[in-house]
Simulated scan of single mutants.
Amino acid sequence: MEQSPQDATLAAYERGALQYAARTSTAPAPEVDTLLARVARGARVLELGSGPGRDAAALEAAGLTVDRTDGAAAFVDALRAAGHQARVLDVRAEDFGGPYDAVFANAVLLHVPREDLAAVLATARRACRPGGVLVASVKKGEGEAWTRAKLDDPRHFTYWDETGLTSALRAAGWTPEQVTESTLPGAVERWITVIARNEASTLPTGAAPPRSGDLAETGRNGADRPAFAGSPDLEA
């Protein structure tokens, strides 16, 4: 049976975790500062797609407690070998755990099919305490595409615009605060950063928009863009 794009992407990360880490900047993503500006020291954060772990390390250094997770067991194994607690978490899961003060999803949700994003966001919201925050980033654009950048095996991406992301957030029960372009100078591709709050919602507890059933969590830590201006990746 042919793999779905999400499962194929996850398999690419499983096979290429070390290669990916070697080809990705070690500087924290800009979304780290975005989150730190919105939570108190000691806040408990769920990170979806920890990858090599650079953003989690920066958040922990600032006094936050991070639950490191990834859909690829290869990344989780590497994090554990480095002395960190980490767990495999697939966004097809019905429950992410919690409650957390924040959910951090840098360069992760771009692997989720368009029709499934609201369901994943709803699961993330249920893991977040009332008043908690979501900080996430996705690639800006139209449609979807495959790339072999960084890894020998192809990865699949879904592109978004601000209007579509805002609609998906609201459908999942989040209250969007900012959904804005955050492309850095010299970046190969354009990006959008999302900031949203878990305010009172009409979405019933345990309810979520329908998902297609073939969704796999394949996200990363700072996957495909430069962490600072003037240092672009060769290709996202």
Rank of each mutant, 00 (worst) to 15 (best):
residue 5 P to R: 03
residue 185 P to N: 06
residue 107 A to D: 08
residue 181 E to M: 10
residue 210 P to N: 08
residue 111 H to N: 04
residue 32 V to C: 15
residue 165 L to M: 13
residue 128 C to R: 05
residue 22 A to M: 04
residue 161 D to F: 08
residue 38 R to C: 10
residue 15 R to E: 12
residue 45 V to I: 15
residue 31 E to H: 09
residue 225 R to D: 01
residue 235 E to D: 15
residue 213 G to W: 09
residue 79 L to M: 14
residue 45 V to K: 00
residue 212 S to W: 11
residue 24 T to M: 11
residue 152 D to F: 09
residue 135 V to N: 01
residue 235 E to N: 11
residue 3 Q to Y: 11
residue 162 E to M: 10
residue 211 R to D: 11
residue 33 D to V: 07
residue 152 D to N: 11
residue 141 G to E: 06
residue 113 P to C: 06
residue 43 A to L: 06
residue 67 D to F: 03
residue 153 D to C: 10
residue 27 A to C: 08
residue 171 A to V: 11
residue 207 A to W: 12
residue 192 I to T: 06
residue 4 S to W: 03
residue 21 A to E: 15
residue 13 Y to K: 12
residue 17 A to V: 11
residue 73 A to C: 03
residue 105 A to N: 02
residue 24 T to Y: 04
residue 47 E to P: 02
residue 149 A to N: 09
residue 8 A to M: 10
residue 140 K to L: 12
residue 221 N to M: 09
residue 33 D to I: 09
residue 182 S to M: 04
residue 104 F to W: 06
residue 211 R to Q: 14
residue 116 D to N: 08
residue 179 V to C: 04
residue 90 D to V: 07
residue 118 A to R: 01
residue 165 L to F: 02
residue 144 E to I: 02
residue 109 L to K: 03
residue 229 A to W: 05
residue 64 L to Y: 07
residue 131 G to H: 02
residue 198 N to Q: 03
residue 196 A to W: 13
residue 165 L to K: 09
residue 159 Y to F: 15
residue 73 A to N: 05
residue 105 A to L: 02
residue 36 L to P: 14
residue 235 E to W: 11
residue 184 L to I: 07
residue 68 R to P: 05
residue 167 S to L: 14
residue 116 D to W: 02
residue 115 E to F: 01
residue 137 S to F: 01
residue 34 T to D: 12
residue 233 D to S: 01
residue 130 P to E: 15
residue 68 R to L: 10
residue 136 A to D: 01
residue 8 A to Q: 15
residue 141 G to Y: 01
residue 5 P to T: 06
residue 32 V to M: 13
residue 212 S to C: 12
residue 94 E to T: 15
residue 85 Q to G: 15
residue 157 F to D: 00
residue 95 D to I: 01
residue 130 P to K: 11
residue 65 T to D: 11
residue 61 A to F: 00
residue 197 R to M: 13
residue 99 P to Y: 02
residue 119 A to D: 08
residue 148 R to W: 02
residue 155 R to G: 03
residue 133 V to L: 08
residue 166 T to W: 06
residue 40 A to E: 15
residue 162 E to D: 12
residue 181 E to D: 15
residue 143 G to C: 04
residue 139 K to D: 00
residue 125 R to C: 12
residue 171 A to L: 14
residue 109 L to H: 04
residue 171 A to P: 07
residue 125 R to T: 14
residue 160 W to F: 15
residue 95 D to Q: 08
residue 113 P to Y: 02
residue 190 R to Y: 01
residue 98 G to H: 01
residue 230 G to S: 09
residue 114 R to K: 14
residue 207 A to D: 13
residue 126 R to V: 04
residue 155 R to Y: 02
residue 193 T to M: 03
residue 88 V to D: 07
residue 233 D to G: 00
residue 32 V to E: 09
residue 192 I to V: 14
residue 143 G to L: 04
residue 206 G to W: 03
residue 54 R to E: 00
residue 196 A to I: 10
residue 210 P to G: 02
residue 226 P to E: 04
residue 178 Q to W: 10
residue 85 Q to F: 07
residue 173 G to F: 05
residue 39 V to C: 08
residue 121 L to S: 04
residue 155 R to I: 05
residue 9 T to I: 04
residue 55 D to C: 08
residue 111 H to P: 00
residue 28 P to M: 03
residue 119 A to Y: 00
residue 162 E to L: 12
residue 133 V to F: 07
residue 164 G to Q: 10
residue 163 T to W: 08
residue 33 D to M: 13
residue 29 A to Y: 07
residue 23 R to E: 11
residue 107 A to L: 11
residue 207 A to R: 08
residue 160 W to Q: 06
residue 167 S to G: 13
residue 159 Y to A: 13
residue 145 A to C: 07
residue 16 G to N: 13
